[in-house]
Amino acid sequence: MSRLQRALRSTRKTVLSAVVALGVAVGGLVALTAAPAAHADTQICDQYGSTTIQGRYVVQNNRWGTTATQCINVTSSGFQITQADGTATNGGPKSYPSVFYGCHYTNCSPGTNLPAQLSSISSAPTSVSFNYVGNAVYDAAYDIWLDPTAKKDGVNKTEIMVWYHQTSPVQPVGSKVGSANVAGRTWDVWTGNNGSNDVISFVSPSAISSWNFDVKAFANETISRGLAQSNWYLTSVQAGFEPWQNGAGLAVTSFSSSVNLGGSSTDGGTTNGGTSTGTTSGGTTGGSGSSGCKVTVTPQSWSGGFTANVTVANTGSSAVNGWKLGFTLPSGQTITSAWNATVSPSSGSVTATNLSYNAQIPAGGSQSFGFQGTTSGAYAAPTGFTLNGTACS
């Protein structure tokens, strides 16, 4: 059995469809060819063609369920399906055009620290924005892959799918087993096995066009349901579309993903004594003043961009119920996405506000959030932190 045949066989999920037979293929399929690093508006029509964006992520065409042409236009922030001929006839979708961070069939995104053991990951923030169309049969979903080993090739043991949107009659593999609140949202939960790997799917009851979350939240829920273990490895985080019919116009307009190990960000590049350019730098403490709060920023930067993981510690004697963290971004920095907090405006004097699930900071406890941004010069840490109006040390 060829490598491609093994990939196709390993990625099936069921669907009730007047268009296709039973069975729905999971998205994370083989990417056999890799193109040079992409510039904005790079066209890919090769069946398994891929390229990189932002020097951090891989975009793949990944057409496997049809012989008809599929083309994607790769931009600096994502991709759009520009041609989607044919209809799936083998029971699965036509393809899984997607953008990913990590390793997928030996194709690893630049500077990734995946695979990484789940127990070593403090957070794994990710975000995506989708554009949908009304004349296609498809789903829009994350594929998050877990395996007992640090696997960079082949099919992983467990696949987590986070479904932002799907059109009738598409549905996940297996059967619905209930619901769960994960990362502040309620999801329908489906579990099953496609013959080669376990699949757990978290399906949004209504369409989500843009959202950010921590991959660890879904990994922890998967562990609690017996479909993974904390000593397993996260190998890749992928977001894209599974089209059965049509699909031209579907787009990922933005994507971010990073993995923080042991409480500090270590994804991308090579660490050099805790500080580096285009790599991980050590945590910095911002602000001054009251001993009631302490803020630590752990950044990771590269040419033209950065992520920052922010930990807000309550050093006082009473709980904080509802928090707003104010701070000032250095000139030239602009926030493009955030997780675990609502952050606005995107530059200058900024306020991060808790979400519903992390509003309380107990005495002696902490909450964390983060953001990704662009910078016109070298990265510099934010300053002037205040928690609900009180200066932090």
Rank of each mutant, 00 (worst) to 15 (best):
M1A: 13
S2F: 08
L8W: 01
T11G: 08
K13M: 13
A18Q: 10
V19F: 09
V19A: 11
V20I: 07
A21G: 14
L22C: 08
G23F: 04
L29R: 14
L29M: 10
A31Q: 12
L32H: 09
L32N: 13
A35Q: 15
P36K: 13
P36G: 15
A40W: 04
A40I: 04
A40Q: 13
D41E: 12
T42C: 09
T42E: 15
I44C: 10
Q47H: 12
G49L: 10
T51V: 05
Q60Y: 02
Q60V: 11
T66V: 13
T75E: 07
S76C: 06
S77V: 14
Q80H: 06
I81L: 14
A88M: 09
G92C: 11
P93W: 09
K94H: 08
S95W: 01
S95L: 06
V99A: 03
F100A: 01
N107M: 12
C108N: 06
G111M: 06
L114K: 10
L118V: 05
S123N: 10
P125C: 02
S127T: 00
V128I: 11
Y132W: 03
V133S: 13
V133H: 09
G134P: 01
Y138T: 08
A140D: 01
A140Y: 03
I144L: 08
P148V: 06
D153F: 11
T158A: 14
T158Q: 11
T167S: 11
T167N: 07
T167I: 04
T167H: 04
V177D: 05
A180W: 02
G184D: 04
G184A: 08
W187F: 05
D188A: 08
V189N: 02
W190V: 01
G195P: 05
N197M: 12
N197V: 04
I200N: 01
I200H: 01
S201F: 14
S204V: 05
W211K: 09
N212W: 02
N220M: 03
R225V: 13
Q229T: 08
P243W: 01
P243D: 06
P243H: 04
L250F: 07
A251K: 00
S257F: 03
N260C: 12
T266K: 08
G268M: 00
G269Q: 01
S276H: 03
T277I: 00
G282P: 00
G282I: 03
G282L: 05
G283D: 06
T285P: 00
G286S: 00
G287F: 02
V295H: 02
V295W: 05
S301V: 00
G305I: 03
F306G: 00
V310D: 06
T311I: 07
A319L: 06
G322V: 07
K324I: 08
F327A: 05
F327V: 03
T328K: 15
L329Y: 07
S331A: 15
T336P: 04
A338S: 15
W339E: 10
N340F: 12
A341C: 12
A341W: 11
S344V: 12
P345I: 15
S346C: 12
S347C: 05
S349D: 12
A352Q: 13
A352G: 09
A352W: 10
G364P: 15
G365I: 12
S366V: 05
F369P: 02
Q372Y: 11
S376Y: 12
G377Y: 09
T386H: 07
